[in-house]
Design a protein around this nucleic acid. Structure first.
Lengths: 202, 202, 202, 202
DNA sequence: TATGAATGAGTTTTCATTCAT
DNA sequence: TATGAATGAAAACTCATTCAT
């Protein structure tokens, strides 16, 4: 998966921070190179150009955040012996910390919502795959937590869950998570209310 | 409110489209000027610089979208004689069409989530005011639709509503509204489920 | 014909020398700007880019050298009262001096023979028009000097004349005219021998 | 003569095509290396630098085209038993095909007329030697075909012949040989007319 | 012999801004 | 109010060359 040189990895590590903070257009290769401890021209020994670097960073971000997502749902499945847990909750619970820790996540959200025009297609394709994976995870988890739900309702809750995730993302992007707790609690409340209601169709 | 000349208004009308499509960094004053039928230097007869133009456009967008929001909630209040309506639904219902019609809304969402670094403060302040107004509208409407709710719950639903609005915004920004209907339905469903549950504390 | 500003004219005057000495690829806009008394970026107030500047200079060269050519043949026609003159001789006689005097001619020959790859078509089209005009001039002059020649022979001498002109051009380009006199004399001798022979078919 | 390694020969073979098509300035060592199946840096294991490579290719071209020239005149001498042939005709007859076949000839003509500025002297010296050899060949052949010509006239025809050769070269360079036949026929006609006239001084 | 990495100098081009007119 | 001209700064990128491996 990672056949890059140490220098290239270092460049990517620097670049993901730059891109996540300034975006594609406002990031300069000079700055990235300087921060990576080399001259601007040296970048071209490792990447064909700005786009190629950006797409490499994007691929890294997809891989890393997919791994994080997978780990969250794996942990959730493992911890669910007690069973009281709500489907998808662990991923949401860890999101704020993850956002603070991972430049890849910060980069990914910024890039997915407002991709640089020339790379719109590649970015869209990649991010959609991540969302599809999230949806699969949630459906699987929901099937475990609430086995009695009809397929139609499962689909509905999956849509709602993805919507809630996006909503939390926005809070992170916009306010850096200042009011994340409240929004998280509120959305989670209405989701669990609805699930509780669906569980007892009496 | 509008003390600008006709030329300045025209420039703003062109600029809002440019900024909404390319963002601050990738928009060039040359292009804006050309599309406004003048030379780049002439812009400086109307605006102090790129930032000033951007902030003027931003103020326009706030004003326009606040007016739209006010109208939605006014209409909702007027139509609510029957009473079946859920609080804040009209605003959400009209959102997709508004996004298609109003470059100001497209500009506003892009700018609010990922503002140009030097203008982060101004943008944040302005957009938060808009959100606060939205929250007030919703609380008022909810108070009318469900007068029995305790204040704590009202606050919770307000948070959830704002979160839902952001989630729909993301769909519009990200996918242009392709899957907006499903997300809208799903989130609205869990919200109304929760409200229904809260209404009958039996 | 010349709607350019004084600065633009000056830039072209500088550029034609640069291009004629170093060719398209080895000419730098920095150098041209410096020699024109301005900064590099200022060139773009006058020309859309390197190609546009080059094509403007090329158009100038075509115009100037066509005018020179026209003048030569006009003078020849005027001086031909005595009649001893050979068709097209004045243009060839003046060529060496012209090459020394006119950067446009030096530019033109270099460009016509080895145009920059991206502009091959434009250059080819323009230069062919100049050659066609030269051919017309020569045919007209030959018709005056040797009215009895059959059309087939006129065509043949026109081809030979153009070939001789190119041969002299090569001498100018290659050696700067060092051995021009000898070549000129030799080619002119065989041309006049052939014409003399054709004149007396006895 | 050829003390180069197989790799170096391969590089030269690639380079001569590049240089003949794009010229010195617009040829990049990267491209040449890639087309030779190696990396740019590897070229420096074979050549001291771009100039050295260019001069090596130039030496190749001189050698090859001199051999071709020698062969043409040797064949002409061998075939001339009948005697009707005009001096130097075989070389001219074969020129178009040679130009199509030999990248070395295409390279040589381009380089001889417009050499890269830093190598002007070396190129000039080498090419002049080739021309001198051509002149010797022609003089020898002319002495065989027309033994009665006075030395003065021989010199004149030699100049004319070199001039005609250059003129055909220009046609090849400029138009790729499109109208070569006509020019060839025309110049050859006036040359043979003049020779015929000189042969019968009656 | 071959190469990955690095680099200084250079390229064309774009941009926001200023200023005299 | 509008603009042509100019410009400093910066952009992405290319190139020939060097060097350790």
């Amino acid at each position: 998966m990672k056949k890059r040189s140490a220098s290239a990895d270092n460049i990517c590590a620097v670049a993901v921070v730059h891109f996540s903070e300034h975006g594609y257009d406002a990031s300069s290769l000079s700055d990235i190179a300087a921060q990576a401890g080399m001259r601007k021209a040296s970048l071209y020994s490792h990447f064909a150009g700005k786009d190629a670097l950006f797409l490499d960073v994007f691929a890294d971000a997809l891989e890393e955040e997919q791994a994080f997502m997978d780990a969250c749902f794996a942990d959730e499945a493992a911890l669910a012996t007690a069973g009281g847990q709500l489907a998808g909750s662990l991923y949401c619970d860890r999101m704020a910390q993850r956002y603070a820790d991972s430049a890849h996540l910060r980069f990914l959200l910024r890039t997915a919502y407002l991709p640089p025009a020339p790379l719109r297609v590649e970015v869209g394709t990649g991010y959609e795959a991540l969302l599809a994976q999230l949806q699969r995870h949630y459906v699987a988890s929901l099937g475990r937590c609430a086995p009695a739900l009809p397929p139609q309702r499962i689909e509905l809750y999956a849509q709602a869950y993805l919507g809630i995730v996006d909503s939390l993302h926005v809070e992170l992007i916009y306010a850096g998570g200042a009011a994340l707790q409240q929004r998280h609690a509120a959305l989670w409340q209405i989701l669990s209310d609805s699930l509780a209601m669906a569980a007892q169709p009496a």
